[in-house]
Computed example of a mutant assay.
Amino acid sequence: MSWDVLLLRLPDDVTSLEEIPSGHTPAPLGRRHEVLAAVTEAVPEVDLSDPAWGELHGPTWSIELNIGSGDPVDSIMLHIRGSGDDALTPALRIAASLRCGAIDCAEGSLLAPGRTSGWHAFQEFRDRVTGP
């Protein structure tokens, strides 16, 4: 079970999903080699030995990066597992390096520094469903 965050190109002035114009079609994140380079620059410890499915591990969390095999890359889905708010730091670093938005798929909101409610709600739900 993972908490999913979608990295997607959004208009620059958008601060919430409600502000996305109707009919907006996101531009690609970039050419595949540029996206992989940006991810590696943002989080040098990322394992991209399978460039379609990157992996990143922290002390109490892991992130799978579903980059896919398309070129250009339209979006990246982050599958975040574990605990600790420090899991949000690399997710936001990757989003910043790609100049894109990070959408909390559980809450339907934009992820930003200090906005941890979706991550905490996911952990509470996961722990309730799976047990201690």
Rank of each mutant, 00 (worst) to 15 (best):
R31K: 13
P51H: 12
L88V: 10
A96M: 02
L111Q: 11
S97G: 05
G30F: 00
I103A: 03
D74H: 12
A38E: 06
V43H: 05
A37T: 01
L78Y: 01
W53S: 00
V43W: 05
L111T: 13
D86Q: 12
G82D: 02
I63N: 06
D71Y: 14
P51G: 02
H79W: 08
E64Q: 15
L56T: 08
P59D: 08
W53F: 03
S62W: 04
M77G: 04
I67D: 02
E41T: 15
P113Q: 10
L110W: 04
I76F: 03
R32W: 06
A52N: 13
I80A: 13
E64D: 07
R81Q: 11
L48V: 03
D104I: 04
W61G: 13
C105P: 00
I80T: 07
E55P: 06
R31N: 02
D85G: 15
T89K: 03
M77C: 10
L92D: 13
A38N: 06
R99H: 13
P72Y: 02
G101A: 06
A37R: 01
A38P: 11
G68N: 07
L111G: 09
E45I: 06
A91V: 05
N66C: 05
S109P: 00
D50G: 08
L92P: 15
S75F: 02
D47Q: 13
A37S: 00
R31V: 08
S69P: 06
A42N: 14
S97Q: 06
G70R: 13
I94E: 03
P28F: 05
V35T: 10
A112Q: 11
G54W: 01
S49L: 06
E55Q: 07
H24N: 04
S109R: 12
I67N: 05
P59A: 11
D104S: 08
A95W: 01
R31S: 06
G54H: 02
L65W: 01
D74M: 08
L92Q: 14
S109Y: 01
W61Y: 12
V35A: 07
V39E: 02
P28I: 08
L48I: 12
A112E: 13
H33Q: 15
R99K: 14
V39S: 11
A42T: 04
I80Y: 01
E107Y: 00
G23T: 11
T89Y: 02
P44N: 10
T25F: 04
M77I: 05
A96R: 13
D71E: 14
E55M: 06
T25Q: 12
L111V: 07
E45G: 11
G84H: 09
P51C: 14
E107W: 01
T60F: 09
A112M: 10
G84R: 09
E55G: 08
A37M: 00
R99L: 05
G84S: 09
L65T: 05
H57K: 11
